[in-house]
Write a protein that binds this DNA or RNA. Structure first.
Lengths: 250, 250
DNA sequence: CGCCTGTTTGAGAAGACTCAAAACGGGTGG
DNA sequence: CCACCCGTTTTGAGTCTTCTCAAACAGGCG
């Protein structure tokens, strides 16, 4: 079996004891494979499960009374999703797979036991949740206060930063398996305006495109102009207590 | 001394054992009183403290490269703030007091110890964080996909819902101690457009104003038109393990 | 009473939206 | 292997919402 993505993620922030590693192993249950566009969870429908993204990409969206849609976030391997079902029993958003992906199920109660038995993992999850909330603040700021070019740039930069977490080297181009409609729903623009704005960015030499592939040409400039900060990097875990001797010995 | 607001908040979601109550008592340290507009934390400056809002109102904002500002959230009594410093050592937003308020300090390390010793409190904090994240998704959706009237309505309805948590009865009017600039920064509009939009809402009989006081006249209609859902209410804690007998006995 | 901050109003401009049609491209079936 | 089809992207024209700049107005405080 593939290495559990959540374990990898947590390990990246905190050295794990073997007891903690074992606890994580039992956490992820049945796996599910999703095809592009397949939904994992539907807004307003009962739901009491969480999922760990193991492979691929998924997005979380909300549909409005007027039929419009807002994508509130993207989730990658190692992300714990459906956290809104931690607080409620009805899903607050629709989660859809972008491309092919694999997720594993995880019962809420199992998470509760994990909080009790492995407080350091709980604390790390809390830190990750805090970081995600900051990232969402970035998106809110972008949608609320920036123009179309900046919003799209920010989205591209964020995807780039995220890809670099896994793909060691310095990536500067990638396939964007999203329609312009999806992109617009994420940054708060219509698909038509997304098309025009991409055109403008290309004309200005900021990016280049061919098919679904996007190459970021002026990363430095885009970063300066949007004030982009990578939130996918290191997060502080120094405030988390050291493991107890017994656990560490294992 | 006043009852600790965080204790009250947690108790509202989960019956606490006396051991848990004791742990919370030692958590909140020195108190700070803030005057209107006083800042508690400044974006990009080192920070390794958390705060609990004990009384009043505070907001959390981000300033952009172009000088614009986005208010990413409001925090009320019982909220744990500065959670971004859980993940980083630099503050990601500027926290400013709306009106007079009282907060108490809380060291990150103390939170770490609390996660270890009182896992049920940790789990409840996690659930609250999940709920906050959903609330932020609401704001993102509103700013990304709604018109000016809807955005303002949503903000008013949210404040109303929040006030009702504390003020038992059915409130339908309140003092808004925010300038229209602040309101605009929260919903992604200019202050000029906020003024016009309030004017329009008044003309349409949706609200009435006199001075800083706002009265919501057509709550039903506003709720329907925006799809507002109150996120301040109950959150699920059924997934949190029951306390151990020893702790419960105390 | 005057000052300062915040609100309102007006006029014009810019950005993003709508509707509509044409171009593109990948996938399927003949 | 080609032709067609569907979803997506691009382009155009005109409109609407929101923004900018500017000035007048209100209200609370020293």
């Amino acid at each position: 079996m593939r290495r559990d993505a959540l374990t990898t993620r947590l390990e990246q922030h905190l050295p794990l004891t073997s007891s903690e590693r074992r606890a994580l192993e039992t956490l992820a249950q049945r796996e599910r494979r999703l095809k592009p566009g397949e939904t994992l969870m539907i807004q307003d429908q009962p739901n009491d499960q969480l999922f760990i993204v193991q492979q691929g990409w998924v997005h979380s969206a909300r549909t409005l009374v007027n039929g419009a849609r807002q994508i509130v976030g993207f989730h990658y391997a190692g992300d714990l999703i459906g956290t809104s079902s931690i607080a409620w029993t009805i899903a607050t958003n629709t989660v859809t797979s972008v491309g092919d992906s694999i997720v594993s199920e995880l019962a809420k109660a199992a998470l509760g036991r994990m909080f009790e038995q492995e407080p350091r993992l709980a604390a790390t999850l809390y830190a990750i949740a805090a970081a995600d909330s900051v990232a969402m603040g970035d998106r809110l700021t972008s949608v609320g206060r920036m123009g179309a070019v900046e919003r799209l740039s920010l989205m591209l930069l964020d995807i780039l930063a995220r890809l670099r977490v896994t793909a060691g080297g310095i990536v500067d181009s990638f396939d964007l398996p999203l329609t312009q409609q999806d992109i617009g729903d994420a940054v708060g623009l219509t698909k038509v305006h997304v098309s025009r704005t991409f055109g403008e960015m290309e004309r200005r030499g900021l990016i280049a495109r061919s098919g679904r592939r996007v190459r970021v040409l002026q990363e430095r400039e885009l970063t300066a102009m949007t004030g982009f900060i990578d939130r996918h990097g290191v997060i502080a875990t120094d405030w988390i207590p050291a493991p107890h001797a017994t656990a560490e010995a294992a």
